[in-house]
Amino acid sequence: MDTTTDSGSNAQADRPERLDRRLLIERLSSYWLIGAGLFAVALFALIVLTLVQQSIPIVSEHSLLEMLTSSNWDPASEEFGYLPAIVGTIYVTVLSMAMGTPIAILAAIYIAEYAEGRMKVIVSSFIDVLAAIPSVIFGLVGLIVVVPFVGDYLAPALGTHSIGLGIVTVSLVMAIIVTPFMISLTVESLEALPDELREASLGVGATKWETIRSVLLRAAGPGIFSAILLGFGRVFGATIVPAMLIGGQTAIPESPFDAGETLPSLIVNDFGELMSIPLTQSALIFVGLLLLVIVWLFNFGAMLVRRRLQRRWQY
């Protein structure tokens, strides 16, 4: 095979054999890759099928509409109302995104467009470290710091009452978890923009802020939108923090300072003790299916919006 030392004629003779081998590897490699791709699809199908199959008992015994709109969750007496957990999930998601998104975008603009030199390195590495902390640690710190803060200071300051555990507490902690994550992604989309865009805008006399507001935020818009959606997905599917900090109340919360339940925390908190009752197991698995479908619909809608933004704000 060593064609460098051989004479020309020898190399010629080697070539067909070598070529055959290369073509064989080429063909095999496509098989492996197809195999790996199909495996992923199969795994996905398996998960969906399992969830669907395991959800059948509860869906066949209780009306779907009734379960989604009933606020009574009492598995012992076969009452499976999901509404408290649905409301809790919406509360937590909306509150943490409302707190996290503006901060994330402003911080990302600072890092991508204003910070320079050492400052930029320091700030962005802290953000990266923050984004990499396992959420259970945030849960623990939340228990020690945020729970007393909300119970003893924030709620009384706002003229209401809280035991500390509850929706606001979870939302605060979840906002702290997703913000660095959204910052990183937003910084990436801003830094991926070509300098020509900045030059084009500054070159007609725009200020830096005008350039950011009317040009860069639009051009990076689809990327920032994705960052927000990924953050949204993380909050929506968050399990451990709500399970630790929400207080496990399956009643519709009257105020954000109340304890509650989210869909994922409902699964975790009820799983261990109630799996022995088949119908409850099915009810909880149905929650999983519900989560999956909502995330799907959401991603699909997000894709459509993103496409529109990409067309409108192309550069």
């Binding site: 070509p194 020509e196 865009l197 030059e199 084009a200 805008s201 500054l202 070159g203 007609v204 006399g205 725009a206 200020t207 009317s214 040009v215 639009r218 051009a219 818009g221 409108r312 704000w313 192309q314 550069y315």
Partner: peptide
């Protein structure tokens, strides 16, 4: 910004701003 308004710049790479044709000119 006023200096840069008086001395305009057109980049090498054709770079539209992410807005309409109208607003590119009206920018």
């Amino acid at each position: 910004p006023e200096i840069r308004r008086r001395v305009g710049y057109v980049p090498q790479k054709p770079t539209p701003l992410p807005v309409s044709i109208y607003n590119n000119v009206a920018y």
